[in-house]
Write a protein that binds this DNA or RNA. Structure first.
Lengths: 332, 332
DNA sequence: CTGAAAGCGCTTACAG
DNA sequence: CTGAAAGCGCTTACAG
């Protein structure tokens, strides 16, 4: 690879002049500039990003730390992050944690050591101290989907309202006995969906049912098992709310196997929908999460913090909440 | 952030000694070493990756360039890449192209300038020259899923055999009139599936039907439209092969809306399956692509090339082909 | 308008 | 066993 020095030699000027010309960072005589551009072109010169970064203390790279990608909302979010970051001249590093605090710690530690200017994280909640350390050391941090630290900016969806709205909507569709398929309260979104749902149930005088399982929550199998459990215990259940889409798929499958008609005998709704709901044999009503937009907003927010020097220097941490949008389909 | 210099000062030694001690790169007196470790710990020292990279000419980062992530096989592949890369001490950068040659060019150009040691790419095929340039400039390159340049190592699945096997399997299930939902021949996988399917059809004396559409191939809508078109033209079609899963979902939907029974009246198979096939109301038979393993292998391969200095210095480009595995489910 | 010099944080021959 | 020095490729005050 050609370096600044090569270009300088070919154009018969100093490297500093080449740098100024190429970066338009101060006036350079047009003739000189022309020579430099010609030389750079001839040599196929591209600046070395690492050297720039070392010198400027800015890497133009953000890191994204999420539990996993496949069959989750995170692949859609990541797509939004990456697109926006790219538009703003930033590259995107990805690190998956499987929701294992130890893996997460490794990811975060690796990223903080000069890999990135900022980190967007959907965390396990077990590394709060580390996240605050990282933020204090000058690396921007934004929490995504799960808000666990008040001092760190965040972008989430309003899961509480989502749980409430879904229950209210189902009531309007004639349901009275509702079962919730959820996940570990250790993660705020599950907890909040529960709270919203419970509040609505109480206010509206509905009957609520829950299920117990120690499988990992974010899976088809979990949805399948829970739906079966709910129906074993309450055969005349008339609605199932699934926290996430893959659980909803599991519930649809379980209900279908039992020969129940959707939506006539039982209605099903997903509380974190994305497009897959529209691609089914029986399409699934869901509270759609604007994942792509949330990803773009997260990229925007973290880059703002990077370029202004973090929330300390501005108005303090920002907390943004998106609203889920009801998308009615066949399953209700 | 503490630097080497800070540690050196605190431990009362030269930075070079600190470097040697921390990297175990040559003998350092145990007492000195202890002092250095204590100092590093006290200051919370972590080496600056950018400086290391600049100095060593190695970034320990690989780039992945794919068309998109959400609802595609790429999120699963990426998960495999990232996991393996992480295990081998590499970070993973992601860049999406929407299969737009111009965006792809931007991605590749950005990555080559010192961001990464190697690039794993599922390309549009329009930037072959650039890819070869990049490889020649010392950045490792591996083609994934789509093999377009013989001089560049690749990891693909055997789409030809997959198309053949699927047709043969459907025949064994009693099918005779088969429709293929495919995509642009500009991309090798679609072309090869077509070739494999066509060969089998000829050998086995089957009737083959195809469909025309100018929508982008990799979508639910495309599958839906094509299935309808095929059935309009050939109402007694007894099987549909969909190149990818989302097309298969579209086909299932179209067939269901027409009131046809799956699998009794018509059978459906996806030629690039992943787990979603198992999560449906009518589960979908598919040729499963070992996406995660392919991703891991790609990471392994590119890191090997990085660490040995590229295919030039070794046995030349490697070309690996994975076999798809038939997964029988309800749709056949 | 442009050059010479310092320095970002590290590693690695070269001495001793 | 350890220090002093050069250098990775760039940018940016500082002169002139």
């Amino acid at each position: 690879m050609a370096t600044l020095k090569d270009v300088a030699r070919l154009a018969c000027v100093d490297v500093s002049t080449v740098s100024r010309a190429l970066n338009n960072t101060s006036y350079v005589h047009p003739d000189t500039k022309a020579r430099i551009y010609a030389a750079a072109k001839e040599l196929g010169y591209h600046p070395n990003i690492m050297a720039q970064a070392l010198r400027q203390g800015r890497r133009h790279t953000i890191g994204v730390v999420v539990p996993r990608l496949h069959m989750t909302i995170f692949s859609e979010i990541l797509q939004g992050v990456e697109r926006k970051a790219r538009q703003l001249g930033y590259a995107t590093l990805i690190c998956t944690t499987e929701d294992d605090p130890k893996l997460e710690k490794d990811c975060l530690n690796r990223l903080r050591n000069g890999f990135v200017d900022g980190i967007i994280v959907t965390g396990t909640g077990r590394n709060g101290r580390l996240l605050k350390d990282i933020q204090a050391s000058g690396v921007a941090v934004v929490q995504l989907v799960r808000r666990q630290e008040a001092q760190i900016s965040s972008i989430v969806a309003d899961y509480r309202v989502c749980g409430e709205d879904a229950a209210r909507y189902l009531k309007s569709r004639g349901c009275r006995k509702m079962g919730l398929i959820n996940g570990s309260f250790q993660f705020a979104p599950y907890k909040e969906r529960y709270e919203g749902f419970s509040r609505a149930v109480e206010q509206l005088g509905l009957e609520a049912h829950f299920c117990e399982s120690d499988r990992p929550g974010n899976s088809f199998e979990y949805g399948y098992d829970c739906a079966n459990q709910l129906l074993d215990e309450t055969p005349d259940l008339d609605a199932i709310l699934a926290a996430v889409d893959v659980q909803g798929l599991g519930a649809i499958r379980a209900v279908t196997e039992r020969g129940l008609k959707i939506p006539e005998q039982i209605k099903i709704i997903s509380l974190t929908g994305h497009e897959i709901g529209a691609m089914l044999q029986t399409t699934m009503t869901s509270m759609e999460m604007p994942a792509q937009r949330m990803g773009e907003k997260a990229a925007q927010m973290i880059i703002d913090e990077i370029e202004t020097g973090g929330p300390q220097k501005t108005a303090g941490p920002q907390h943004l909440s998106f609203t889920m949008q009801l998308e009615e389909r066949e399953s209700t």
